[in-house]
């Protein structure tokens, strides 16, 4: 399979994702930039890497979303190609409209780098489908991870099971105490309506080895890179 790893000017997580695909799968990682994005038509999976695309100028993800690559991704999203957006990738997915809502500044107004716990709220065959994991431990590192959507959207997300992950205690308890950035409903990641697209603020690629503090990230990315059969 061909795994597209998107790099905008300012993206800075691309190398570890390429390394992940090479280390933990037999697939071919393809770095997609402004110079070769037409290749996106031939990809099996798309990962929008984290970082500070276009310096987070204006607002995180907006310039990337309106760029030719952003438009191409929006176009492709309509054909159900699985897309994983991590951190800035999540922000970009929201600004393209592929996912609803918007990521705003952390309530503390500071960048926050720490290990957090997530409650798996809802599964998807493309991202997390085993019943064995109710909570995951992943690191976050962001300045604008505070998810916001309208009340109507929130009801819709709940109704359709689109809330993928919520910040929680190690045992899956949801409360303000475990919400690092003020996200509405402690939302850390959401799917699109048909669950082929996942956007999340935490970094699964950085939780890929016990030496790094957790390998729970493998659960998400390995599923994403696997061959899945969907009805």
């Amino acid at each position: 399979m061909k795994i597209a790893i998107i790099r905008f000017p300012g993206t800075n997580n691309e190398h570890e994702l390429i390394r992940y695909v090479n280390t933990y799968s037999k697939h071919e990682p393809i770095l997609i930039t402004n110079n070769n994005y037409h290749q996106l038509d031939n990809m099996d999976r798309i990962i929008i890497a984290g970082g500070f695309s276009y310096g987070d100028y204006l607002r995180p993800g907006i310039i990337a979303a309106k760029s030719p690559i952003g438009k191409k991704i929006k176009e492709l999203s309509l054909s159900s190609i699985p897309i994983l957006g991590i951190c800035n990738g999540f922000q970009i997915l929201c600004e393209t409209g592929i996912l609803p809502g918007v990521l705003t500044k952390n309530l503390s107004t500071r960048f926050i780098s720490k290990m957090i716990n997530l409650k798996v709220q809802s599964k998807s065959p493309y991202f997390i489908n085993s019943d064995q994991n109710n909570t995951l431990q992943l690191p976050i590192a962001h300045y604008e991870g505070n998810y916001y959507c309208s009340h109507e959207t929130l009801l819709e997300l709940k109704k359709k099971g689109q809330i993928a992950f919520q910040y929680s205690s190690p045992t899956g308890q949801i409360s303000d105490e475990y919400n690092p950035n003020g996200s509405i409903n402690s939302i850390a990641g959401i799917y699109n309506a048909d669950k082929t697209v996942l956007g999340l603020m935490p970094h699964p690629e950085r939780a890929s080895d016990p030496l790094l503090g957790s390998s729970d990230g493998r659960i998400i990315i390995d599923t994403f890179l696997g061959d899945f059969h969907v009805n």
């Binding site: 607002r59 907006i62 809502g101 918007v102 705003t104 916001y148």
Partner: peptide
């Protein structure tokens, strides 16, 4: 509407 502001917020 399309770029400079996010109408949601």
């Amino acid at each position: 509407e399309e770029l400079l502001a996010n109408p949601l917020i």
